[in-house]
C-alpha cells in the first residue's frame, strides 16, 4: 500500500543546528505510527514539516504522493483540511470560547449551520470526555485546567473529521485516567473511522498500546522502525536505554 505520508531523504536545519540529515520514513493509511526520541531532537519539527508549517531544506515530504513544499495556498488549505494537528500545549485560541475553538475548522471549510456545528461540537467533546460539563461550550480556555485544554484541543482537531491526525505529545501533563482516555480515543478513531495517527510521545505505555509501528529518532534519522514488539526486542543499546529510561551518571 502506498504511504499516505512519506518523508524521503529530508534535510532540515535551524541555523547551525542540524535537525535531519537524509531522513526517511513512510506512514501507511489507517495505521498509528508513533515517534519517540530524546527531548529537543526535533520530533515535533517532523509533524510541522508534514503539513507545511515549516519548510524543509532538501528532500521530499509527500502527502498522497504530492510534494508538500510545492503546494500553493489552496492545496495547503486542502492538505490541512485532511491532516489535523494537536499541539503540545493545546494552542486553544484564548480570545474564543470552547465552542468557537472546536468549530473553527468547520467555519473555515464547511457551510454547516449553527445547529449542526453545535451538535458536532457536543459530539467531539463527548468523545474526549468533556461532554459531562454542559457549560463547557461557553467557557473560555483560561478557565479550563491543563488537561481539559488539551482535550478541548483534541476535540477541535477531530471536529472536521480529518483522515490523518498528528499528535504532539498528547498525554504530557495529564493524569493517568486521562492518559488512558486519550490512548483509548486514538485507538477508537483508528478502529471506527480508519483515521491515520502519527503520535509524538515520551509516554512509552501509550506508544506500546496504541501503535502499529514505532520509530525512534536517533542521530538525525529514524534508523529504528518496527512494531512495538520489534522495537522492544531491539538489541541496540540506545533503543534499550531510551525505552527503559536507563540513565548513566557519566552522561552528565
Amino acid at each position: 500500500m502506498a504511504p499516505i505520508i512519506e518523508l524521503r531523504n529530508v534535510y532540515k536545519r535551524f541555523g547551525d543546528n542540524i535537525i535531519y540529515e537524509d531522513m526517511s520514513f513512510g506512514v501507511e493509511p489507517g495505521e498509528t505510527f508513533t515517534i519517540i526520541g530524546g527531548s529537543g531532537m526535533g520530533k515535533s519539527v517532523c509533524l510541522k514539516l508534514m503539513i507545511g508549517l515549516l519548510p524543509y531544506d532538501a528532500g521530499h515530504v509527500l502527502y498522497r504522493g504530492k510534494e508538500v513544499g510545492d503546494m500553493d495556498a489552496e492545496n495547503l488549505r486542502e492538505l490541512r483540511r485532511n491532516v489535523a494537528m494537536v499541539f503540545q500545549g493545546g494552542a486553544l485560541f484564548d480570545s474564543m470560547s470552547v465552542f468557537d475553538n472546536v468549530t473553527y475548522a468547520l467555519r473555515e471549510h464547511t457551510k454547516m449551520s449553527d445547529q449542526e456545528m453545535l451538535e458536532r461540537a457536543r459530539e467531539c467533546l463527548d468523545m474526549v470526555g468533556l461532554g459531562y460539563d454542559k457549560e463547557i461550550l461557553y467557557r473560555m480556555p483560561a478557565s479550563l485546567s491543563g488537561g481539559m485544554r488539551k482535550r478541548a484541543a483534541l476535540a477541535r482537531s477531530i471536529a472536521i473529521k480529518p483522515e490523518v491526525i498528528l499528535y504532539d505529545e498528547p498525554t504530557t501533563g495529564l493524569d493517568p485516567a486521562n492518559i488512558e482516555r486519550i490512548g483509548h480515543m486514538i485507538r477508537k478513531l483508528q478502529k471506527e473511522l480508519g483515521v491515520t495517527s502519527i503520535v509524538v510521545t515520551h509516554d512509552m505505555p501509550i506508544a506500546w498500546k496504541c501503535s502499529n509501528r514505532v520509530a525512534m529518532l536517533w542521530q538525525r534519522k529514524f534508523p529504528y522502525i518496527g512494531t512495538p514488539d520489534e522495537i522492544q526486542a531491539n538489541p541496540a543499546p540506545e533503543v534499550h536505554e531510551f525505552i527503559n529510561g536507563i540513565y548513566h551518571e557519566d552522561q552528565d
Partner: peptide, 18 residues
C-alpha cells in the same frame, strides 16, 4: 507574540486558515 510562543498562530494555519 504570545500567540506565537503558545503555537496559536501555527494552530490557525494548521486548521486551514491564513
Amino acid at each position: 507574540g504570545s500567540m506565537k510562543v503558545s503555537e496559536q498562530i501555527d494552530a490557525i494555519a494548521s486548521l486551514g486558515a491564513d
